[in-house]
Design a protein around this nucleic acid. Sequence first.
DNA 1: CATGGATGTAATGAAAGCTGTTACAGCAAG
DNA 2: CTTGCTGTAACAGCTTTCATTACATCCATG
Lengths: 142, 142
Amino acid sequence: MGANSRLTVATHALTWLALAHRRGQEVLTSDQIAASVNTNPVIIRRSLGDLRRAGLVEVRHGAGAGWRLARAPEEITLLEVLDAVDVEQPFGLHRTEPNLECPVGRGIRPALSKVYGRAEQAMRQELADTSIADVLRETLVG
Amino acid sequence: MGANSRLTVATHALTWLALAHRRGQEVLTSDQIAASVNTNPVIIRRSLGDLRRAGLVEVRHGAGAGWRLARAPEEITLLEVLDAVDVEQPFGLHRTEPNLECPVGRGIRPALSKVYGRAEQAMRQELADTSIADVLRETLVG
DNA sequence: CATGGATGTAATGAAAGCTGTTACAGCAAG
DNA sequence: CTTGCTGTAACAGCTTTCATTACATCCATG
């Protein structure tokens, strides 16, 4: 199926909310966001639901409903977004337990977990250093 | 489906080859490696085929056939293994093209590509700093 | 207080990828 | 030539992602 696009969809939504707010738009509906991302509004509502549970956006119900950022875009990092939308780790361990009678089969899973953990931590640090405001600036420049 | 286990399977095979060689085993067959990984020999042959095309292992055909490392385990990094087995990038961009009439839709893909590129590069650097010899040492300690 | 427009969420289906398995052709040492 | 292993294709089962439909719920507004 390929890598999933959840981080992309969520970041796109947040970036669009940040720009709309700057332009004086109080809130955006899932329909309006879906029109920019070019997907179904339900996909957007699911993504924003994750972000709401993580405290990154707020929702208003009833007439005049819609979404807005819960914080300034400078204070939302892509790492928070990643954790909110629950993207799987890039490297999977063995699908079935390796042969524990082999010294390699016995010890390799903890060994690989350490390496994978370091690699993922390095990746997370880069995302922690990037905010929605950074993405918006780069988006408008390009 | 979850993250795939190709890097794990390939690294396991290489680590087992490194240990076997240290013990005086000239080569290992895909059956022997499959017994340690606990999977089907075809999976191992597919993985080792990728590693062979990348120049990390050598294969011997005919009677007494089998596989061995093409280099010292200290000189095979997990980054080379990753590139050999073609693991997908962790973050996918939009599945369908975003709305180009929206300023965010127009500029966000290059912006995200930059961020994702930095994150992946940080991850790759960690893998580049880890060799099969490192994995073997850590495997036997644990 | 009724209403209309939006959210929240379940259910379903299509498409794609990973792993495992079987089958069989090709190769080379003895 | 025989034997044992590699190299690959083909296929099935499982899982995940995304899209879509449907519908209950919520609440500012008139």
